[in-house]
Simulated scan of single mutants.
Amino acid sequence: MAAEVTYRGTVYPWQCDHVGHMNVMWYVGKFDEANWNCFAHLGLTPAYFRQSGRGKAAVQQSISYKRELLAGDIVEVRSRLLEIGTKSIRLLHEMRNAETGETAATCEITAVHLDRALRKSTAFTADIRETVASHLAVTEAAIA
């Protein structure tokens, strides 16, 4: 999938630390909200998770901080699918200052698809895998 907007919000004063910029805990929170919007776009909706007894769990997350975000800044996160495995999915998020267009941070995350009752990873069903993979094919075609 091409990078799509998966989060828009504002940096509030209470999200800033003693140095005056947005604290790292809020980057994680905003990237998490982007995860849920991105997953829903891929067909992994809240209804799907509720009805199927499935869930997702982050197993690896890497954040690179590029520029400060200050109270009042408008934040936009764009996300794209990097990889779909049998039981896992990998995404890349880019957080930007919506006014300046500058990249504030990037986040690469790997999440596993899990059976909530067994508390174990489980394979995606063929239909879900096909839907998600179709978004990956769009990304690969755009790069080629």
Results as ranks from 00 to 15, higher is better:
39 F>A: 11
39 F>V: 13
39 F>S: 11
39 F>T: 11
41 H>D: 15
41 H>S: 12
41 H>L: 11
42 L>E: 09
42 L>F: 09
43 G>I: 07
45 T>K: 01
45 T>F: 00
45 T>M: 08
47 A>R: 15
47 A>Y: 02
47 A>C: 07
47 A>N: 10
47 A>K: 13
48 Y>V: 14
48 Y>H: 14
49 F>K: 10
49 F>E: 11
49 F>H: 10
49 F>R: 10
50 R>Q: 12
50 R>L: 13
51 Q>S: 10
51 Q>T: 12
51 Q>D: 13
51 Q>H: 06
53 G>F: 00
55 G>W: 00
55 G>C: 01
55 G>I: 02
56 K>T: 11
58 A>Y: 04
59 V>T: 12
59 V>A: 07
61 Q>K: 14
63 I>N: 06
64 S>V: 14
64 S>K: 09
64 S>Y: 15
65 Y>G: 09
67 R>M: 11
67 R>C: 09
67 R>I: 04
67 R>G: 08
68 E>N: 12
68 E>T: 08
68 E>D: 12
68 E>A: 13
68 E>V: 06
69 L>P: 05
70 L>D: 09
70 L>S: 13
70 L>Q: 15
71 A>W: 08
71 A>S: 14
72 G>M: 11
72 G>W: 06
72 G>D: 13
72 G>V: 09
73 D>T: 04
73 D>C: 03
73 D>R: 10
73 D>K: 07
75 V>R: 11
76 E>A: 02
76 E>T: 13
78 R>T: 15
79 S>F: 09
80 R>P: 13
80 R>S: 15
81 L>M: 08
82 L>I: 10
82 L>Y: 06
84 I>W: 02
85 G>H: 01
85 G>K: 03
85 G>V: 01
86 T>Y: 00
87 K>V: 02
87 K>N: 03
88 S>R: 06
88 S>Y: 00
88 S>D: 03
89 I>T: 08
92 L>V: 05
93 H>V: 01
93 H>K: 02
93 H>I: 01
93 H>A: 04
93 H>F: 06
94 E>K: 03
94 E>G: 07
95 M>P: 05
96 R>Q: 11
96 R>M: 07
96 R>G: 01
96 R>K: 12
97 N>R: 08
97 N>D: 15
97 N>G: 04
98 A>C: 08
98 A>L: 10
99 E>N: 14
99 E>F: 09
99 E>G: 14
99 E>Y: 13
100 T>P: 03
100 T>W: 10
100 T>S: 12
101 G>Y: 03
101 G>M: 01
102 E>C: 01
103 T>E: 06
104 A>L: 05
104 A>E: 02
104 A>G: 07
104 A>T: 03
105 A>N: 04
105 A>L: 02
106 T>E: 07
106 T>G: 01
108 E>V: 14
109 I>G: 06
109 I>W: 05
110 T>A: 12
111 A>Y: 04
111 A>D: 09
112 V>H: 01
112 V>T: 02
113 H>K: 01
113 H>S: 02
116 R>C: 03
116 R>V: 07
